[in-house]
Design a protein around this nucleic acid. Structure first.
Length: 398
DNA sequence: TCTGGGGTCCTAGGACCC
DNA sequence: TCTGGGGTCCTAGGACCC
């Protein structure tokens, strides 16, 4: 069995670039990629974090995920734009369709990243490089945004390679290049080594990816468990995971919201919770899936997060049933704190086909099912917000 | 006007069973 | 009668990713 040929395609500053392209298409003169600018959430709604930044903004030290007010301190005349998920979806699909012309073995890793297995094309390294160049060039010409492409024989190395110098670059990271191109990097650059782990590694004398690679594997396993093994393998460029090109079913579906102001009334939280449940169960039905576990998350005004979960009596995707359990969990866990964020997620999902309906609530479930499907149809036809349950209309939040 | 939202995976501890 | 040990399931929390 020969080596696989895998590339990782990563859109440069995706949300920001896509917004820039859309603006240019709509006749604006200014290319926001050329000035210090960010895509950010709504500060009035208390969602003011940096979601994407331009290269000039990056050079001023602005980081993704940081509060906008902090970014503004670094650059007082920073231009801030809001996001538009539908627009992102459009460009993401366009990119995906372009790559589909080469192979269908594409794993959509996120809205702006994908892995592509090009092994079946029977190309040597040079041939793969030429395909990468073609994709890179075509995306730029046909859509107006740029991508980085990483090339290697497994996903991890391809992803690491696409993260090298940006934007609009192609890099290889074959096994024989690991030492030269990857080992000198700071260990924080390694995929899956995050903020919490870096200081732990530094404390035991590991600063670079090379340091990690040369550390005894058994020692890392003893210290970090499974995660230690993974880090060691990644540092050594070992990764056997396949490109998952058949879309996989979700393991869980959640919806949470940071509230514009802190809330400490149970009835008010319940109303918000209903909206969240309505959306979660709608998406669950769209996936033709059933849930077994409901989990409620609360973040209080001090950013303390806690969760409580409970099992449903039987698998369901019925809005009312999921809501009734959600409400019960919330009531049990709620200690009258000031709530900043509330969320609900369903877990332990299964496909609708292999489900059993509980005999005991067959009748009520049947009636609820009809209500759900009628509401779903209206939502599909006239838009998600065209209809909601009467109880939530009466006293709208806010 | 200070810190989003959607995911996946892992771990630790307790309950329970044989 | 001073109290093993393996296994599974469940819950809460936390790490990481984009």
């Amino acid at each position: 069995m020969g080596e696989r040929q895998i590339i990782h395609v990563d859109v440069n500053n995706a949300f920001l670039s896509w917004t820039a392209v859309e603006k240019l298409k709509n006749g604006e003169i200014l290319d926001i990629r050329a000035i210090p600018s960010i895509i950010g959430g709504d500060e009035k709604q208390r969602r003011g974090v940096v979601l994407a930044k331009s290269t000039p903004a990056k050079h001023l030290g602005i980081k993704t995920g940081e509060p906008i007010y902090q970014a503004r301190k670094k650059c007082p005349d920073l231009k801030i734009y809001s996001g538009n998920y539908e627009c992102y979806r459009k460009y993401s699909d366009a990119l995906y369709n372009l790559i589909s012309e080469y192979t269908n073995k594409i794993e959509r890793f996120s809205i702006d990243e994908c892995f592509v297995d090009l092994t079946d094309l029977n190309q040597d390294n040079l041939g793969i490089m030429n395909i990468a160049k073609q994709i890179n060039k075509r995306v730029k010409q046909e859509f107006g945004f740029t991508v980085n492409i990483g090339i290697s024989n497994n996903k991890l190395l391809a992803k690491m390679a696409s993260d090298f110098e940006k934007p609009d670059k192609i890099h290889t990271l074959y096994k024989n290049e690991i030492q030269e191109k990857m080992w000198n990097l700071n260990v924080s650059e390694l995929f899956m080594v995050g903020r919490q782990t870096v200081p732990k590694l530094q404390r035991i004398g590991i600063d670079t990816i090379g340091d990690l690679a040369k550390t005894e594997e058994r020692y890392l396993i003893r210290r970090f468990g499974k995660y230690g093994r993974m880090m060691w393998e990644y540092a050594n460029g070992i990764d056997n995971q396949d490109v998952e090109f058949t879309p996989t079913k979700p393991k869980g579906i959640g919806n949470s919201i940071t509230l514009p102001y802190d809330v400490n009334k149970l009835e008010e939280l319940e109303k918000i919770l209903f909206k969240l449940v309505e959306q979660v169960s709608y998406r669950l039905r769209k996936q033709k899936m059933l849930a077994r576990v409901v989990c409620i998350k609360i973040k209080d005004k001090n950013f303390q997060v806690y969760t409580h979960q409970s099992r449903l009596k039987s698998d369901t995707n019925c809005t009312k049933e999921i809501y009734l359990l959600s409400k019960k969990i919330l009531k049990e866990m709620y200690k009258n704190e000031q709530v900043r964020l509330i969320g609900v997620r369903v877990d332990n999902l299964s496909e609708v086909e292999n489900s059993q309906m509980s005999i005991f609530n067959f009748e009520t479930e049947n009636r609820q099912k009809k209500i759900d499907s009628v509401i779903d149809e209206i939502k599909d036809k006239y838009g998600y917000n065209s209809i909601t349950r009467a109880s939530t209309i009466k006293k709208d939040i806010k």
